[in-house]
Design a protein around this nucleic acid. Sequence first.
DNA 1: TCTTATGCATTAAATGGCCTTATGTATGAT
DNA 2: ATCATACATAAGGCCATTTAATGCATAAGA
Lengths: 299, 299
Amino acid sequence: MHKTLPLPPLTAIRVFEAVARHGSFTNAASELGMTQAAVSYQIKVLEDRIGAPLFLRRPRQIALTEVGQRLAPVVTQVFEQLSEAYVSARGGAQGTLVISTIATFASNWLARRLGSFQIAHPSLAVRLQTDPHLVDFSREEVDIGIRSGRGDWPGLVAHRLINADFAPMLSPGLAASIGGVKEPADLLRLPLLDPGDPWWARWFAAANVPVEGLASRPGASMGAQVYEGNAATAGQGVAILTPAFFAAELADGRLIQPFDLLCDDSQAYWLVYPESRRNSPKISAFRQWILGELGPSKR
Amino acid sequence: MHKTLPLPPLTAIRVFEAVARHGSFTNAASELGMTQAAVSYQIKVLEDRIGAPLFLRRPRQIALTEVGQRLAPVVTQVFEQLSEAYVSARGGAQGTLVISTIATFASNWLARRLGSFQIAHPSLAVRLQTDPHLVDFSREEVDIGIRSGRGDWPGLVAHRLINADFAPMLSPGLAASIGGVKEPADLLRLPLLDPGDPWWARWFAAANVPVEGLASRPGASMGAQVYEGNAATAGQGVAILTPAFFAAELADGRLIQPFDLLCDDSQAYWLVYPESRRNSPKISAFRQWILGELGPSKR
DNA sequence: TCTTATGCATTAAATGGCCTTATGTATGAT
DNA sequence: ATCATACATAAGGCCATTTAATGCATAAGA
């Protein structure tokens, strides 16, 4: 057990510092935003604790006693140090934004846009941390998380970013090679990328296209969408993809989505952070940025 | 107007320092003499103010976050400085005893005895300040005063030291030179020292001895007693003196007081100090010493 | 695997430190 | 002599702080 340091009443010391600096109870009170009576009280408290007067009460002014003169400079300096450390802690706490995200979102969405956030907030360092499990903000040093799920985490604020829905996509050239894709069954005349992905079976079922022979292996599709997207853009086949991850390709025509039919995994990607830090500047900044990014393109 | 420094909640900082040092809310609580719940609350307050967690809550232990790691050493150091200054102020306040006294008492009584006080309290420096007016403790840096008066000063504790009474004194040799002093009138056969002192007239009146011709000039007797006492001891005449100031001479026979008749000026010497500082160690020490000095010899 | 122990979080309620308002006192200025 | 200034004091209220009781999660042990 560590020896406890003998410390003066801190409230009183705070008041003493201001009084010593001003040489006046009244002026110190106005700086501290309290009444002169409160200052008088605190000084008395401190004088009682120290066992000696700190000020001489002269008619229209006060003067530090010897004891007060020895105490005042130390106290002033101590508060300066403390203030600096405090301000720096508040500031430093805002200097780095740690994002814990799952790899899929990082590579398919965040990677290409994060630059604009960093340009908008040049004083904020961003640390990306991809991690498959749901971060526990109370035991890991992470500011915000991006996770899939249902958005109902207790104690956390969750903003829905994008739905994890999916539809077939292919390059315009590949579609033209069979004279255009008119109906879902047409897709079966083209190579399917990762045909074992359970999303295929689900989508064709929703489209009322009976399909056999789609190997039913466990899909490693999550996180690999970016590769399949590249392959599809290159015209190598039809991929089943989440449109929000390929908004740019769909917009500029590198990929087309021939059917509006979207299937749903009943999953979504969420931005999450602790309720208690809702108003942290860096978290506000990121929230504002990411929701703005989603607004214009795909909502 | 000085710019107000931004400061953290000081109570919370105090708790934070202990927690950081112990690495435990529970242990810090016991050091601080409060409950673990209170510690938890204060840490939360500080974390809210700073806008970031200071500790990571891991299963059976906590760990400082980066923000906490930067804050903790500064805070610890700041409290060490503050504690040192505080202790030193409390101690320093007890290192010097400033006595404001009137010259008579200083020269006739204190001067010869103060040495024993300083020997008994070698760590206490004594500063004697002779000053004719009654010290105002609220505007002068004085610890104790010795003054004559009636002992009824509001806000001050007053201990009666000695009565300012008086009686004729002379050396045994001088008394023998006229065959001994048997009755008050015998004194008139000897030279009176400072015959103009009003004390003489008053004493002879009390002794029912009619006297004429005592020059009625304003007596400078107060403060001069020590000189008259020396002259009397040397056999140069009869002096009218305050017995308490010549206890040693009376005890060893250098002076005799032929008559018990004491006259009274209705004055006394008092030790005074502010009620609020009654328990200050140095004041207690002096009070105890001076009352002890009076006890054995003359009470 | 179940039980126990440890350590922090939370809630509601009690406490008292701290502040304010109102007023008093002393002194210097007009 | 009256007014203005600055600190002291008294009474009362409020809210920050604390406590007691309880919950929760995890690690250790049987």
